[in-house]
Design a binder for these strands. Sequence first.
DNA 1: TTGGTTTAGTTGGTAATACAAACCATCTCT
DNA 2: AGAGATGGTTTGTATTACCAACTAAACCAA
Lengths: 142, 142
Amino acid sequence: MPADDTVDALVDALVRCTFQITGVLTRIGADNDLSLTQLRVFGILRDRRPRVTELAAYLGLDKSTMSGLIDRAERRGLLAREKNPADGRVVDVFLTPAGRDLTQRLYLEVRDALAPEITRLRPAQRDQLLALLDPLLNPTGD
Amino acid sequence: MPADDTVDALVDALVRCTFQITGVLTRIGADNDLSLTQLRVFGILRDRRPRVTELAAYLGLDKSTMSGLIDRAERRGLLAREKNPADGRVVDVFLTPAGRDLTQRLYLEVRDALAPEITRLRPAQRDQLLALLDPLLNPTGD
DNA sequence: TTGGTTTAGTTGGTAATACAAACCATCTCT
DNA sequence: AGAGATGGTTTGTATTACCAACTAAACCAA
C-alpha cells in the first residue's frame, strides 16, 4: 500500500463529511425524540418489511439490541410486529401509519437540512458527485 | 425549495455513504474497545489540546457526558487531564503517548479499510471527489 | 413419529453513552 | 468584598449495546 497524499486527504474528507452528516441526523433525530439508530431503523423500514434478524444484520447490531429498539418504538405506536405466517419463529417488523408519517417528515427535514450544502454545488457538479459516490456505495465487481 | 430529483438522490447517497463509513469506523473502534464517540475524541485530540467544554462542543455532547468519556479513557491511560494554569476552572485534555500511538494505529486502520473503495476511483476522479466534498465541509461565505 | 439439532426471538444482566439538574470551585465585574 | 457567571464534576435516569441463557418453532435423521 503506497503512501498517497490524495488518498489520505480523501479519507480525511470522507470521515469529516461522515461526522458532519451524522451530526445533522443526530440533531434531527433528537428533535423528534429518536436516536440515530432509531432513525436508521425507520429509514430501512421505509421500503422493507424485514424480520427482526434481518433488521439487526442491516444495522450491524445484536438481535437482543434489536428487540429493545423495536419494543420502545412499538410502545410509541410507530412500528409493529407480526408473526410470519409461513414460519412461526419469525417476527416481521413494519411501520404503522404513524411511523410512516414520521418517517416522511424526517426525510423532508433531512433533505432541507442538507439542501443548503448541496445547492452550494452547481447542478453539473451535483451529477458528478452522485456519479463519484456510486462506486463507493456499490461494491459491484471485486 | 423546488422538488429536484438530483438533490433527493444526492441526499440519499450522502446518507447511505455516511452510514457505510460509520459502520467501518464502528467496527474498527470495536476491534480496539472504543466506541464511535471515543474514536471521534481521539481524532480531535490528534492535533488539539482543548478544554473539556470545547471538546464537548466539537462533538455536540453535554459536559457531563464528556466527563465520563474522559474518565474512562483516562483510566485506560490513553489521555490525561491537566488544570489550565491560566484559569483554575478549566481542565485541558490531551493524548498520552499511549493514546497517541493508538490514534496513529487507528488512523492507519481506517485508511486501509477505506482504501479499497477509494482506489476503485481513478486518480483523476479522486481529485474531483475531493474538490466536490470541500464545499460541503467548509461553509465559507454564506 | 419421536428425539436431537438448528434457527428465531426474547429475557436478564452488565457496561457505556447521553442528558438534565444539582453542586462546587474559580473567575469577573461592580 | 459580594453577586453573578463560567467550567467541571457528581448524581440519577433512560437508552443503547453486548453476551449468555432461555423458549418456541422448524428441520432432520433414524
